[in-house]
């Protein structure tokens, strides 16, 4: 950093700030709008208000959709963390078959969601599974599994083999080693993976539209509302979700930075 001459540092700083402003300023529009009334394209700065938030609290459609999203998110997280962790544990240190499995796990995450969604839709119809929240949860789990698997596997790979050996060496059984040494060392990766999985599930739209039954999740609901135009309370909703998402990201980052590094920084 310090090797760069001063004018180029200033230039780089200017470019960086410009990019940041262009990319992120649209995000602040709904936040600002949620506190001020807009009429005929002009923001009325004189009277900040919480009226949009009050209106949101009365919008039962949106609140129902939010509830559905949370239910789907929580179920998806539980399913994907359990199965992703088990898969990572099973395939850790196993050479044969790992690349094939990895490919299969990553496929739904890398494919265009519309393809994954269609494939799932056809699959559910073939096996006669009614479209419902269950199919949404299955769809989301298939989609986010790769993230959890990868996160946990990376932690397993960075874990020193001698930790497990030391546990056995000190007289622990395989079961004790798993619960008292392996799992606690994975837990922060599992939490980090869970937060990422939840965030992905929260705004997943394409697959959800295709495999959901009568209930809508929040993104699907917003999607449907676009045709009629948004009511001001949507601004409040966007502001809330934005805050929530930022919080999740901060948490995820916290859990995913290895413990060693975190303590060294202190």
């Amino acid at each position: 950093m310090s090797a760069l001459p001063r004018p180029s540092t200033i230039f780089l700083a200017a470019i960086t700030s410009l990019v940041a402003v262009l990319l992120y300023s649209p995000l602040f529009v709904p936040i600002v709008s949620s506190f001020f009334i807009i009429s005929h394209g002009n923001v009325d700065w004189s009277s900040p208000t919480l009226s949009t938030y009050v209106a949101l609290a009365g919008n039962h459609d949106i609140l129902a959709a939010l509830r559905t999203t949370l239910i789907v998110g929580v179920c998806t997280v539980i399913l994907s963390v359990v199965s992703g962790t088990l898969l990572a544990l099973y395939y850790h240190g196993r050479r044969s078959g790992r690349s094939v499995l990895q490919f299969i796990i990553f496929l739904p995450f890398l494919m265009p969601p519309i393809i994954s969604g269609l494939a799932l839709l056809i699959f559910f119809r073939e096996i006669g599974l009614e479209r419902s929240l269950l199919t949404v949860v299955i769809g989301h789990t298939v989609f986010v599994l790769a993230i959890v698997y990868r996160t946990v596997l990376m932690r397993l790979q960075s874990m020193s083999r001698t930790l497990v050996e030391a546990s056995y060496d000190l007289g622990a059984t395989g079961w004790q080693t798993f619960w008292r040494v392996i799992l606690p060392n994975l837990s922060s990766a599992m939490v980090g993976g869970a937060i990422l999985a939840f965030a992905l599930s929260f705004d997943e739209t394409m697959i959800t539209i295709l495999v959901t039954g009568t209930q809508s999740t929040l993104p699907v609901r917003l999607w449907a509302m676009m045709r009629l135009g948004f009511s001001p309370d949507i601004n409040a909703l966007v502001a809330l979700i934005l805050m929530f998402t930022v919080l999740l990201c901060v948490l995820a980052a916290r859990f995913l930075i290895p413990r060693q590094m975190a303590t060294e920084r202190n």
Binding site: S160, T162, D169, P184
Partner: peptide, 12 residues
């Protein structure tokens, strides 16, 4: 019992 080269202390 073994004292490992990297100590293998349980970090948690």
């Amino acid at each position: 019992n073994t004292v490992f080269q990297d100590y293998a202390l349980f970090p948690h």
